[in-house]
Design a protein around this nucleic acid. Structure first.
Lengths: 221, 221, 221, 221
DNA sequence: GATGAATGAGCTTTCATTCAT
DNA sequence: GATGAATGAAAGCTCATTCAT
């Protein structure tokens, strides 16, 4: 069994993408809505502007999506699922098989994969982050489908590296929180510096420093 | 000179709070606006609802604040300034005098202070975070008045601890980013668990673990 | 070539009227707006009342005209153009061919034609006169498209009758002013008396007296 | 009895002006209101702007004038009266005594006098003309107090010059209309050219041409 | 399926007017 | 007498949504 984790990710991504069937107009509407929602926020976005950018009549939007909110959910929900793709591989054993020897390698793989993901879905991710506080359904979905599953899987992974003597004996939730804080902080700073030419951001370097920082902070000396 | 950093913070906070002069109605409007903005977001909040909650006529709002956006800025701007109070103490020498021997102590003081601050201004802070992406003026203000000043001061502080041999020789910006990621991750998780009784969140413990994590990640072995 | 000037006017009027394409609702809105603007003045007219009289929803007005002012301009602009129809016949030679032997005949033709015009567009004309002082765009339009063209054409006409020895040698502008003052004074008084049954206004008589007055005032003895 | 008509006019003007008693604030309000009404029209003028220009509180306006409309009437009514000052000299006989030998002289005196008047009250006059169509009270006032009195007096004057063989035998109303049309046309064109440096308006010349035009148009050959 | 005119509720904002100080 | 904060009705305008074509 020579499959790598990356291949698993790719397969998952693909199979989800293929599941979608929509007309050209519908896809244009989605694309336009993503743009406008990301630019102005859901509440300040007008269906009129979305229709114009999509090059369709305003009525056409409501043929495909009952309400404006429906349109939001249609955008955000599938990305929420994809967001945790790496953590919900179906075959449990395989995950462990296709595993990494060290926490460091695992982190590096996850970061690379999720950055690739965000590059493709940055706008939807922005919308998700922006709107979660105002839509209980999104919160519910997030908690049930995302957070719990990620935590569940990460629990196993942390347990494994603990048992191999690579991670300190502090509560799993704390390990996960500290790991994720560092990674998310890296990703956000990275995104913030992406469009600024004068930033002097050395991505390769910062990523490695972040990983090293996590390892130093969590390893048994 | 036995003053502590905390005393400085307190004094600053107080003097700013006292500077405000407004009628009772005006303050009720502000309070109501903060509530509604935090609950629904700026764009989805209606001046009508704000007026009702404040117990004033809708026209009264516009006597005090030319536009709805004006109202937003009046709420957010002063808090932005207070947000960095600990980093803009006027007398430079005193800051160093009232200083801490170890990075760890410095972190513990900053966290305690800012958590206290957030307890008092959580709603406004939420609004600030939510609205910054959609209002270039806020972004500008944030970059110029907040980010640059915090970085400037943190630079000095990191330099000091580096020179004392307590911090590794990695770029200051990286040190700052990693430190802040961990702290902000702690603060957010804390806030997330605050209203949930079943959370089993041991704040004292998590805070200390976070500080230890940072120290381990950044110290020279 | 037996065409008369009147026929030219009629043709021009017709062709302009035909150029307009609009839905039934749109035309009802225009009609209602003309009524209300004429009755109350632009500033005192409410889009709400216009909508009610037109039998449409208020929003419908703003689907067709971006702003209330837009609605005003849409009403006034085309009438401004028609106002000077007799003075902007395209084919210059024909104008002179279809010409009149005496200034008196010319005046009688113009008055008859413009009175007919005003009978059809009195309300819009009122609005135009009322609103010109408050809208620089209207002033500009009036100066450029109306006044200058009328003066230009009248100049030629006055020159012609001067060269035929029918008009005194006073400046053309003065001739035009005196002629128009008398005619406009007649038209206004006529309009003022139109709705009053007790007025004892003998229109035929007054018109002829006005023309005679002008001729006596401007002819070489 | 060597008094001239001009002296009568002056006396009348003065005595009316003196009759007014008002505080400094009140007069500032009036002055500001005149400005704003003339600039924007009554309906589009806001009491707020008037108060600001007058340098008083908005409430102060309503202490002196029950409503905004009251303010309008307080401005327009007295000027309406003054407008016809030359035609309502109290002592009937004196009017005829202080009389002119020729219609021409009478016209020249009236024009000079009313132009002086308009120079001082142009803004109020503008307001009057603008608002008359929308306020039945003003129309009523105008008809009863102004139009009828002017016509009554002009009737006598025209009769006199007819009896002296200076004016043609056409109806008095027609004579008056033609006379006034020419004069008003002159006054308006004059006002229109007043602020335009490039106009090349020779006021003396145009005035005399206007008078000559009237005389030629109305005299027995 | 797609359109876009029409809707009417609701939005932010303005305004003349009131009234306690 | 003067103030200016407060009012609430009404203004112009926007918007998500509907529906006949």
């Amino acid at each position: 069994m020579k499959e790598t984790m990356e291949q698993w990710f790719a397969e998952l991504e693909k199979s989800e993408a293929e599941a979608v069937k929509m007309t050209e107009k519908q896809s244009k509407i989605l694309q336009a809505a993503i743009e406008v929602f990301a630019e102005k926020g859901f509440a300040a976005a007008s269906t009129n502007e979305i229709a114009q950018r999509a090059g369709v009549a305003e009525g056409t939007i409501f043929r495909h999506y009952k309400t404006k909110k429906d349109l939001l959910l249609s955008i955000v929900a599938p990305v929420m699922t994809k967001l945790i793709a790496p953590f919900v591989l179906r075959d449990f054993n395989k995950v462990l098989d296709v595993d990494y020897d060290r926490y460091e390698l695992f982190l590096r793989a996850v970061i690379a994969n999720r950055i690739e993901f965000l590059r493709n879905h940055m706008n939807v991710f922005k919308i998700l982050i922006q709107e979660i506080p105002f839509h209980p359904e999104l919160q519910e979905q997030f908690r049930k489908n995302i957070l719990s599953k990620v935590l569940e899987r990460m629990n196993l992974i942390v347990d494994k590296f603990k048992s191999r003597g690579q991670l300190m004996e502090i509560p799993n939730l704390t390990v996960i929180r500290l790991t994720m804080s560092a990674i998310i902080g890296y990703v956000i700073t990275r995104a913030y510096n992406e469009n600024r030419e004068d930033a002097g951001w050395d991505d390769e370097f910062e990523r490695e420093e972040t990983i090293s920082f996590i390892i130093r902070g969590l390893s048994i000396k």
